[in-house]
Simulated scan of single mutants.
Amino acid sequence: MDFATPIGIGVALVAIMVSMIMDGGNPASLIAPSSMLLIFGGTIGVTMATVRLKDMSMLIGGIKSAMLAKAPVAEESIADLVKYAEVARKEGLLVLESAAKDIEDPFMKKGLQMVVDGSDPEVIRMILEGDIDSMKARHKAAGKIFKDMGGYAPTIGILGTVMGLVHVLQNLSNPSTLGPAISAAFTATLWGVMTANVIWLPIEGKLHRMGELEVKAKQLTLDGILAIQEGSAPRIVEQQLLTYLAPKDREALEAAKAASKKKAA
């Protein structure tokens, strides 16, 4: 699991609260139910108006994905594909049918099953690239929801502040209430800006990054499957797939393999 997003949001909120205390403020003054209702309810409502009702089901899923994200591990995919390349090289492609039954990754399982079925390489590429494009579209739709919320929240906050100031102007005859009323009015703007920049936009950014990593992982798998079908040597398959890793990751993987061989010897 990658907990960078919840940790980052937590650090940002703590920094905001501590800085407020250092300036002599009271964080409890930010707990304004009316402002929070306006910001969260208004932002979700306006965002809902821009998409299909079905699309809003991605709101909870997107938050969960960002908070508890599990990035695909390219090294594991490479190891699996090289193993299948060795099996196919020694025993033939048909042997992969039994191996494919135990594969947890649906994308890899689907690709290897098509290889076993003798599908044309171009057909395999077309179908799997179609799956990748569909995944990109889903990620884009989920990211758009949070990006829109990040754009609407500050404006809803300004609306709340204007509403509060209207209330202030209606009660000028009572000077003792002006200070708290003005403070409450600006709380809406604070919540709008804070939720946009501390919650919604960071989540959108995390989903975008996780989408990039998943696309890269599936593209790696696609290339490995096609290389296996072509009958490439396992070593060639491995070298081809290692190009997807950063140089330092390649070095770490090679070091781990060398250490494993040394231990086995």
Rank of each mutant, 00 (worst) to 15 (best):
V116F: 10
I127N: 12
V95R: 10
A141I: 11
M126N: 14
D102L: 11
L128C: 13
Q113S: 15
A137W: 00
G164L: 09
A142V: 02
H139C: 00
R125Y: 08
M126T: 14
M114K: 05
I103C: 07
A85M: 10
L159D: 00
K140A: 13
D120Q: 14
G160K: 08
F146T: 02
V162C: 10
R89L: 03
G157K: 08
Y152S: 06
K110E: 14
I103T: 11
R125E: 15
A142G: 02
F146R: 10
I124S: 04
K110V: 07
L159Q: 03
D105Q: 09
E97R: 11
D102T: 15
E91W: 04
G118M: 06
I158P: 09
L159Y: 01
I124M: 03
K101C: 05
E122T: 13
M114H: 05
E91R: 12
D120H: 13
K90V: 15
A142L: 00
L112H: 04
G160P: 12
L128R: 12
G157C: 11
E104W: 09
S134F: 13
P121V: 01
A141E: 10
V123D: 12
T161M: 13
G130Q: 11
L112Y: 03
V115W: 00
T161P: 10
K147H: 10
E91Y: 11
